[in-house]
Design a protein around this nucleic acid. Structure first.
Lengths: 301, 301
DNA sequence: TGGATGCATAAAGAGAACTTATCCATGAAG
DNA sequence: CTTCATGGATAAGTTCTCTTTATGCATCCA
């Protein structure tokens, strides 16, 4: 059976408006429908309840006893319903739930979120980090920042940055190693996670043949930021994304010995969110903000 | 714009059921619809609110924060709505509003309503008398008892009784007049409301030619029961409906001198109510009761 | 008396809501 | 480790609610 037959909700809403206005026509105006439709719905409700709700007098209508009894409760119930929905709609604007990779979160987001807060003071941000590719259908999340190819089905994706990489090490290590003048010199040092395929790519681009990476110790730390910490501590050379370590480079905690920067064509950083939520205000707000930030950052603002 | 677009009431109801059951399928069962329809409605609501309400996990679903916030209020609001409607539906059973002609009300209904109460103790009866033909659209009324032809548009009508009439007078008047042996003898007495067309009809049927009614004093008392009172008081002969004065005849307050009873073919008593309310329980109950009473009365139970 | 107001009714069209059929993923069971 | 059962998503098609337009009727007002 049709839902509306069992319990005529729409008719009740129309009834409520009519009771409030004391007029079919005015209620129709409020609800954006014709007087005819209002008449139809009221009749429907009256038939469902089995009791006339209005007395049709010449130039005005009046509630019957039954209508008089029904109206206030219905008004209250609808008010409650409206308030509940409005609350959720409103509250959903208040919190933005971001899932991000740990590296991006710590190296990029953490230090820039302040500017988002400044622009959108009413929106609280919860930043959750995980390496797994979250599923929007199963996890509570508004947007995700992921690395990958940006072709996830059902998601709208914006490329945030390409993942560049180049060797970095601490200035102290440069000094103690007697100077790094040629890419080949790096091989004299410990490579933090020599198993990282980025090394092979970079050495090849640098024209260093046969760096013998396979024989070196591998110590996958799991996250780029850990490798960076190790490099800053002078424990070796790490291959890092310069975008993430601009501050450390500027502060002299790290140096980038060669301008050669490689790019992983298959793995970029993406902003992603469900296609059908592209117009949710808080998502729109964040998208605009982060894309602007990315451009400013690239041009050095 | 469609009403359901502005504020998806049906979707909210579906959401409420799903939240309660924690399952699309079970909610569908409760609402008498398929799982598919439930899925559709939930998606609709989610799109309207701009926020997912459920997390679709493999074998079960869970409310999101937003859903968690929404559910209890929605449940409460719908409970209120249901209760309000149930109350009106119920209360409408409690009171039966009858409009009746004064004569029928006082001479027939008043002394028989007790038996209706006995059979339907939960239904209170309000008996309102008026001579005007009430309009169900303008007056609060469940049923009406009218005299007429029973062909009112929009109303279902049941013939209650034909309107018979025959002269009646008090036994004292019979005695003081020296006996009433022939219809012509009535003309020796005062005719209460000689202008009543019933007299002409009756005398004609009785074979009394030219009773010269026009020359007699006319005193329309307005209601048959007043004429009856006058007759009982010995003030003359009234032409009355015997059905209404069975008690008075039995008690000897009135006598019916001749068995000749005429019938007004154009004016019967009818039970009438709006066609579309024929299945309202209290109306059904009253209809059944009064029709039975009529039959019993006719056969003398 | 003629015009304005307010609701009812009829007919027809739009589109929402529901169903059937099918698919996919997960968890449980043999 | 298949196979089955469960629970939901999706696609396509259909039904029928709801709405609108057009019209009528009654009342009130000038």
């Amino acid at each position: 059976m049709k839902l509306s037959k069992q319990f005529p909700l729409n008719a009740l809403r129309v009834f409520e408006a009519v009771a409030r206005h004391g007029s079919f026509t005015k209620a129709g105006d409020e609800l954006g429908m014709t007087q005819t439709a209002v008449s139809y719905q009221v009749k429907l409700l009256e038939e469902n309840i089995g009791e006339p709700l209005f007395l049709r007098r010449p130039r005005h209508i009046a509630l019957t006893d039954a209508g008089e009894r029904l109206a206030p409760k219905v008004t209250e119930a609808f008010a409650m319903l409206h308030e509940a929905v409005a609350t959720v709609r409103g509250a959903s604007e208040e919190t933005l739930l971001i899932h991000s990779t740990p590296t991006f979160a710590s190296q990029w987001m953490a230090r820039r979120l302040g500017s988002f807060h400044l622009r959108h003071p009413a929106t609280a941000v919860r930043l959750i980090t995980s390496d797994t590719l979250i599923d929007f259908a199963r996890e509570s999340a508004d947007i995700a920042i992921r690395s990958g190819k940006g072709n996830w089905p059902g998601l709208t994706c914006h490329r945030l940055m390409t993942i560049d990489f180049t060797p970095m090490l601490s200035p102290q290590l440069v000094a103690s190693s007697g100077g790094i003048n040629h890419p080949r010199d790096l091989l004299k040092l410990r490579l933090i996670d020599a198993g990282d395929p980025w090394w092979a790519t970079w050495f090849e681009a640098a024209g260093v043949a046969d760096p013998d990476l396979a024989g070196r110790p591998r110590s996958r730390l799991g996250a780029q930021s850990f490798e960076a910490s190790a490099a800053i501590a002078g424990q070796g050379v790490a291959i890092l994304t310069p975008e993430f370590y601009r501050d450390d480079l500027a502060a002299g905690r790290l140096v980038q010995p060669f301008p050669l920067v490689c790019r992983d064509d298959d793995w970029d950083y993406w902003l992603a969110y469900p296609e059908n939520r592209r117009n949710v205000p808080k998502i729109k707000a964040f998208r605009n903000w982060i894309l602007e930030e990315m451009n400013d950052g690239g041009t050095g603002a």
